[in-house]
């Protein structure tokens, strides 16, 4: 059975070191950006901005460091399912807790 599954297309993909250095520089830059943005007072938008930048960084890590870019599409679908689930859980809880106000 195992022999049937093992095909050459499923071998690991080796990335050049240079790509990773670039990705790392990008992550460092985004960290600088999030620190800089936190100094500006934008009210509620501060939290939104912080989460947005963090998500960008997470996406970069997943896409390059965690090889999602090079892997079979099944991995991307699975990650999508997980993110949607997390979104549903957060979203549906919020239709309670934001509307309820102090208890």
């Amino acid at each position: 059975m195992k022999d049937v599954m093992e095909t050459t297309a499923e071998k690991p993909h080796a990335s050049p070191y240079g790509t990773y250095i670039l990705v790392w520089l990008c992550l460092m830059g985004l960290t600088g950006l999030t620190v800089a943005v936190s100094g500006v007072h934008l009210g509620n938008w501060n939290a939104a901005g912080a989460v947005a930048i963090a998500s960008t960084k997470a996406a970069v890590v997943i896409w390059y460091f965690m090889h999602l870019r090079y892997d079979k599409s099944i991995f991307r679908w699975m990650v999508l399912v997980m993110i949607i689930t997390l979104g549903i859980i957060l979203g549906l809880t919020f239709i309670d807790s934001t509307v309820r106000g102090p208890f």
Partner: peptide
């Protein structure tokens, strides 16, 4: 090593969220 790496990157990603949420929103 790839699977160990996946785990390590996840630990990193979680910190990427923790850092601004706790330290920067002052």
């Amino acid at each position: 090593i790839e699977n160990a790496g996946l785990y390590w990157h996840l630990v990193d990603i979680i910190w990427v969220y923790l850092f601004p949420l706790y330290y920067l929103l002052t």
